[in-house]
Design a protein around this nucleic acid. Structure first.
Lengths: 361, 361
DNA sequence: CAGGTCCACTAAATCGATTTACTAAAGGCG
DNA sequence: CGCCTTTAGTAAATCGATTTAGTGGACCTG
């Protein structure tokens, strides 16, 4: 029953393996294919890769080669080819963790574009651990990736590889940042709340490690100033802990309630924390949106189906992932010394649902 | 400024690159390292890989080699090594899509275990398209992965590679299935509902493509029979469409309501569809849990923070991912002709929250 | 018919490691 | 002293492609 690989190879050779799909374990190599058609591996390689050098090969021979390749189900050996050509058609993708919402929507955009373009990617989660943040890019390099996409990840060191960073804001040589227009986002949210009559607005900032935290907050303060909305320190808190669950938003909201400075609206760092905050409010007997309006950020899948449905600022997450992939592949195609975009900006959108309402008189 | 690789290599050679971290673009090869210590590449390879053949090499020489390797920051070329050894330390992971909930929790379990063990993986989403389901395993093979993990994915064809399938139920040679004890799960849910006095229970089955759909439903029917709970055809519907959003559950619930056969409880296929169903019920003026109790499945992150918090059957998703990774790596380590487990079973857990309540009299 | 061009290919180097088989020198032993 | 065994390595084959530089023969041309 269990033949050695060598045996099964020899045996099968006898029974005319030129026909149909090659079901045997071991794939056929170029050398074997060459022997089969009675030509040299060089010729086959040239023909199969449609090299201009093969222009002089008559079509009949080419057809013979193509047919044999199909017949024996020849597939070039990835490692051998990559070793020779120094191309792996592989990227590294670095994310904080794999979680619903922000990350997974961006990843979908990335994956759909990459696979369509014949690229694969290896994925690593740094879980906000500094040593992994340091380590994984090196491991990616060791794995011969052609570029790196970082999602919601602060990367500080300059890389020798091209990098696209979704929601990256540091200005680093070699990095293409894909960012939201945060000024517009802050404006949309604050205008919306102000338009509903809210003046005492509480804020939940993101965790320090979130790459959007600082820029978002700066934009909010700036737009608040312009709209003459006071940002009271006692109405500002920050997410703590690195769980991707609503729990951290829940705890943040509890802190806001504990400060007992009155407020009628909350602008949360993201939808997940908004959902946690709503839980805290309802536990405290404050109804959303009747007593407190809540606006989230991102417009993740679950936002629309939360109860109450979340008003939020939509980021085109899928598109941001796709843009990152596109930009990076373009850079790779252009070669390492070509100019490249340092910034790609996308626009936010206000999505009004049920968690915001006019301030009660 | 922009030197050719050849130039920069020659130039740098001159300026004593033995010191500190090798910052230059091009990594140093074994041959270069060998030249640097004045030994042959063979010797270095033997020593660096701690081959028993290198036992006769004196420690002083070994130290010299190790030190040089560290000094020049030598890292073996992945492609070259893999080509020679026929090992890539890479798996392929096949998932329907990247979404919050089920998939991402399983993936976290997979990724944490794999990366810890020095494995990477390439990821592909088939999005339930038959042609991709066919294509990706082949592409994985072409990429020289050592095994495949399939998540919530029906794979029918026998593979030449070892496979671990999370929630796979087909009995295929070469596949290790990681499955939940669905009998227990159905029992927990139905006992819970029955215990609250519910007799008219509606059901939402999974989509046909979900690998758990059939087994889960069979278990439910069997346990319902045992508990003498009637399963009325008009109170059974099935998720339609392949969106990972609560939308599909919402639509299913609407169909149940439209059938106008009364019911006081719903057992949904998963938490996401339960959340959609709750939305449908509330829109129809039926309160959850006062009028209708709803129980979900999976216990995804958002279940606990939904409003009302979801009662559900927890699957140890993270652990299932980890088990799949463990089993597969073990199989790879044991070699292709060793026996392997065809089934690994994990236990469900009832998590009671706010979406279920005693039937009103 | 000498010399050049074109055609249809192939030999050999290369990518960067691993691994088997071998060797030169030193040391041990009878 | 001559033979055998260690010791300390090395040469060369190999993994499976790609790619450059040729090569032998047919054909053309003046």
């Amino acid at each position: 029953m269990c033949e050695t690989p060598a045996m099964s190879r020899k045996k099968r050779g006898g029974l005319k393996d030129g026909e149909g799909e090659n079901v045997s374990k071991r794939p056929v190599s170029l050398k074997e294919l060459a022997a089969h058609v009675g030509l040299s591996p060089s010729t086959l390689s040239l023909v199969l890769n449609e090299s201009p050098v093969a222009d002089s090969i008559p079509q009949a021979t080419k057809d013979r080669i193509f047919e044999a390749a199909r017949g024996l189900n020849y597939r070039p050996h990835f490692l051998a080819r990559s070793l020779r050509t120094q191309r792996t058609h592989t990227l590294g993708v670095l994310v904080p963790e794999i979680s619903g919402g922000y990350i997974s929507e961006v990843m979908n955009g990335i994956e759909e574009h990459l696979l369509k373009e014949g690229y694969f990617y290896i994925l690593a989660c740094h879980r906000h651990k500094p040593e992994l943040l340091d380590e994984y890019p090196k491991l990616f390099r060791d794995r011969c990736v052609e570029g790196i996409i970082a999602v919601d990840t602060r990367c500080s060191r300059r890389m020798t590889l091209p990098v696209a960073s979704v929601s990256g804001h540091e200005d680093i040589e070699g990095v293409t940042n894909i960012v939201l227009n945060h000024t517009k986002a802050a404006d949309l949210a604050l205008e919306h709340l102000a338009g509903l009559g809210h003046r005492r607005i509480a804020f939940i900032k993101g965790q320090p490690f979130s790459s959007d935290t600082r820029v978002r907050w700066d934009s909010i303060r700036e737009q608040a100033r312009q709209l003459q909305i006071a940002v009271r320190p006692s109405l500002v808190t920050q997410l703590e802990g690195d769980s991707p669950s609503p729990e951290v938003g829940y705890l943040a909201a509890k802190r806001l309630l504990a400060a007992s400075e009155p407020f009628t609206a909350l602008f949360a760092f993201n939808d997940i924390s908004a959902i946690g905050a709503i839980r805290a409010f309802e536990e405290a007997g404050r109804r959303v949106p009747e007593d407190i309006s809540v606006i989230g950020f991102d417009d993740v899948d679950s936002a629309a189906f939360h109860n109450p449905a979340l008003t939020t600022i939509r980021q085109p997450l899928w598109q941001m992932g796709k843009l990152a992939a596109e930009a990076l592949l373009q850079r790779i195609a252009n070669g390492p010394d070509s100019p490249y975009p340092e910034l790609v900006t996308v626009e936010p959108e206000l999505v009004v649902r049920r968690s915001t309402a006019p301030r009660k008189c």
